[in-house]
């Protein structure tokens, strides 16, 4: 009994530092932000307005567009990226594969490629008279040039391509590291039983990696709901506000326009609530027993 209590006390110590640091640097400012979300006014001239900011959200066309766009990104991009990342990491984990380090580094490069460089090159490649269109038209894949950046539909596609391009390698790292922790004897046993590669993937790899798949899908969901850099740098939210995201709107409200921090904070808390719902849903679907 006393031994158990001792272990229990040690357990609290393990989590103590992290809890204190996060409380100090995140929850304390978050509490202040929450108070701010019930205030309105420009810059330092703030006054309490109750739930006005939250009510205003429902009548704000920019907010509604931003949230719709963000959901489109989320629904298309997260599944594509996770499947692609898993697939690549399984290929790259093959014992007999040559040039492994080279392939891994190549696929990880987008993660470290500077946003500045990549937005310039993306805009250049995806320009209406750009390399991509020239290529696609020349090989008759498409009848005429696509307006990748200036058409509301295609601009969203471009953003989704850009996010996938940049973050697939990022998620791949987590899968790769997890794959190293999987007991090889399970694979050998399966192989002896004559299981097909596809079966091994769905029956062994995916269940074994479940905690990490859950981790990446939750963090990718959070990342996509907060997507900012790609949009700011590639389309600037345009054409019109066809690609604008919630985070970009928060940024504009706080810094581009005369700051209305109260309203910007209210918008942020809507993201928080959405993320909580999605996270809970994903935990539930995965059947993870964290609760």
């Amino acid at each position: 009994m006393s031994n158990r209590m001792k272990i229990n006390a040690t357990g609290w110590f393990f989590i103590a530092i992290a809890t204190v640091v996060i409380t100090l640097f995140y929850f304390y400012p978050m509490a202040q932000a929450l108070i701010l979300s019930f205030q309105s006014g420009l810059g330092a001239n703030l006054s309490f307005v109750g739930f006005d900011n939250y009510i205003r959200l429902f009548h704000d066309p920019t907010f509604i567009t931003a949230i719709t766009n963000t959901f489109i990104y989320l629904l298309v991009q997260v599944p594509v990226m996770i499947v692609l990342g898993l697939f690549l990491s399984v290929l790259l984990n093959d014992k007999k594969l040559k040039f492994k380090g080279l392939f891994r580094t190549a696929i990880f490069l987008p993660v470290i490629t500077s946003l500045v460089a990549y937005s310039v090159i993306f805009k250049y490649l995806f320009a209406t008279d750009g390399v991509l269109n020239q290529f696609l038209v020349k090989f008759s894949i498409i009848p005429e040039a696509i307006e990748w950046l200036t058409d509301p539909f295609w601009a969203k596609v471009t953003i989704i391509i850009a996010i996938t391009w940049r973050w697939t390698g990022y998620n791949m790292i987590f899968y790769l590291s997890a794959l190293q922790n999987v007991d090889q004897s399970i694979y050998e046993a399966a192989r002896i039983d004559g299981a097909s590669a596809f079966k091994v993937f769905t029956r062994i790899t995916i269940p074994m990696l479940k905690p990490i798949i859950l981790f990446t899908s939750i963090t990718s969901t959070i990342g996509t709901l907060q997507i900012f850099d790609e949009i700011m740098n590639i389309t600037g939210g345009g054409p019109g506000n066809a690609t604008t995201s919630i985070s970009q709107y928060i940024y504009n409200l706080s810094f581009k326009y005369t700051p209305d921090f109260g309203y910007a904070t209210a918008v942020s808390f809507v993201i928080v609530i959405l993320i909580i719902l999605f996270t809970a849903l994903q935990f539930r679907v995965a059947g993870d027993k964290n609760d």
Binding site: L42, T62, P152, G237, G240, N241, N252, K256, T258
Partner: peptide
């Protein structure tokens, strides 16, 4: 005035229309 860029973002979207 105070709202050049806020209005401009509205106009950018309307310009598309």
């Amino acid at each position: 005035g105070m709202h050049t860029y806020a209005i401009e973002d509205i106009l950018i979207a309307e310009m598309q229309q």
